[in-house]
Amino acid sequence: MHHGSLLLNSFELHSWLPVAKLEVGHHLYWQLGNLKVHGQVFITSWIVIGLLLIASLAATRSVQRIPSGIQNLMEYALEFVRDLTKNQIGEKEYRPWVPFVGTLFLFIFVSNWSGALVPWKLLELPEGELAAPTNDINTTVALALLVSLAYFYAGFKKKGLGYFAKYVQPTPVLLPIAILEDFTKPLSLSFRLFGNILADELVVGVLVLLVPLFVPLPVMLLGLFTSAIQALVFATLAAAYIHEALEGHGEEEHEAH
């Protein structure tokens, strides 16, 4: 786990700018009983959650028929995630999944952008450094596993044990691949997000180290773009997996009608 930090710690020699310090693999550990958690991840995630809650409360404090300001913004966000979910899951069944997919998108999006926009590194921690919560593998794996649980839940709730039928359809030959898919889905989800965000922060950090002014700006803008796209990709794939679990293989659909 520490090879990354060993490689990158050499940069700290010239860290005359506090924003330009690079640390990977250092964490601010909090001890809870006999459990260890990464404190810096929780600090930033609480800030992100706080932002989301404040924005939501401000938007719904006094709702108007003709929206303005923060209500307008949050309605836009809601319509965006609602359309995303509807496009993936379909008109009939998307409604109960809007909060889950929407929260995934909003949390990841705000986390990523907080990592790209807020100069966390100005805040000194005893160990480790503040960064986007999504640049910790624990966060992304947690979210990806929740997506797995969500689509299993969706499948079982709709079809009961008949959900397993989809593993041997259209032919049992594909059973190993179908099972493998259940492992690759969360793996690819979590690593895609983690890798993109961490890589972006590292690239920006390295560039800031080398050329402190102006040159890193295009890369930072690219980082903003990537961050938004990754949030979109994660939420879209989550909804697509749920849709896959929900959709029948023809005959169940017809019985339901």
Binding site: L35, V37, F42, I49, M74, T103, L106, I137, A142
Partner: peptide, 30 residues
């Protein structure tokens, strides 16, 4: 980089709580 610990389940629980709270204060009213 890849040290998994109690952060993972706690983050999952925290996220589920966030989903529940946002459902009440954001998704439903809007």
């Amino acid at each position: 980089m890849f040290d998994f610990d109690a952060t993972l389940p706690m983050m999952a629980i925290q996220f589920l709580l966030l989903t529940a709270v946002l459902n009440v204060v954001f998704f439903k009213p809007l």
